[in-house]
Nucleic acid binder design. Sequence first.
DNA 1: CAGATAAGATTTCGCCTACAACTATTGTCC
DNA 2: GGACAATAGTTGTAGGCGAAATCTTATCTG
Lengths: 170, 170
Amino acid sequence: MIRRMSEQATATPSAANAVERSGATPHGDAWGALSRTHAAVTQRLQEALAQADFPPLPWYEVLAAVADAPDQRMRMGDLAEALVITRGGLTKLVDRLVKAGLIERTFCETDRRVSYATLLPAGADLLAEMRPVITDELALAFSANLSDRQADELRETLDRVRGTACGTGG
Amino acid sequence: MIRRMSEQATATPSAANAVERSGATPHGDAWGALSRTHAAVTQRLQEALAQADFPPLPWYEVLAAVADAPDQRMRMGDLAEALVITRGGLTKLVDRLVKAGLIERTFCETDRRVSYATLLPAGADLLAEMRPVITDELALAFSANLSDRQADELRETLDRVRGTACGTGG
DNA sequence: CAGATAAGATTTCGCCTACAACTATTGTCC
DNA sequence: GGACAATAGTTGTAGGCGAAATCTTATCTG
């Protein structure tokens, strides 16, 4: 592990004094703000859900995504991509929701490889209860500070960044 | 678990048809963009580090934070807050870095409760190697799409949101 | 139609993180 | 000065997530 350490650790000790501060660049700062803001808001959402005795945030994300999809169902792969988690992780996440009776697995008849996560009434009802909690917290964090116009600009800016982060090859 | 389900699931079945789309609000959209962008960029950074045979992203964050601190050392609690992780989690994260010889634990003589994570030369050198990888990826994602001025505005906007998310009590 | 290749999903495994309980030190109040 | 609360870190435990291997089904090719 860390093969480069033994190579360079003693080779360039002067580097220790020449460390550039990452915060020196506007982009590094922007990334730091993005990262910390995401963490802070996520924490808030999780706390709010826990306090109301609701399931954790990933459950909400699954329910919300599936509910917004046509026929209130989504292919596992698409759902994983939407939540930005791996398919393996999603499989088990969906397992828990199925066990809780919130969604069910349905299967495609034309292509028997694909399976859907399909919303159940209990899931829709729970989602309806959870949404206000999330919405209120987001309103507190965003609406309180940003006009609708600003929020929209923020969204657009972030989407642009994400587009590059996803599309452009490394 | 999920006590509210049994209460409401059958009580308000009509809610299933009255689900509001979270994407309908500008703030919900902004949050979605923030969340997905963070995930996408994080993934990029992790991949870039792994591809260069470097330690994972949290290690970089520790090294960067400590390197930027006065005397290149930070109290555990402050470090945990800076990284937005729990103190317990940080203890073990620091354990790994100590074991790898990148940082060391030092202690405060005036208050013997506090311990510092202190940068070692090997850590500084490794950081110097890792920084370009991170910087390049961030430049790709941010500089390519945003002017310095836009990046700065983005940072300010996010900080404002974060301020509310942290400060306002829930 | 048989074999090869690709795509979708699941399973196995191990690491990492949060949560809660615990220890040790410091501060406060009477 | 001693009891109690508060603060700083660590530890023990459980659970979630990612990486890679596996299994099944589709599709392509001769």
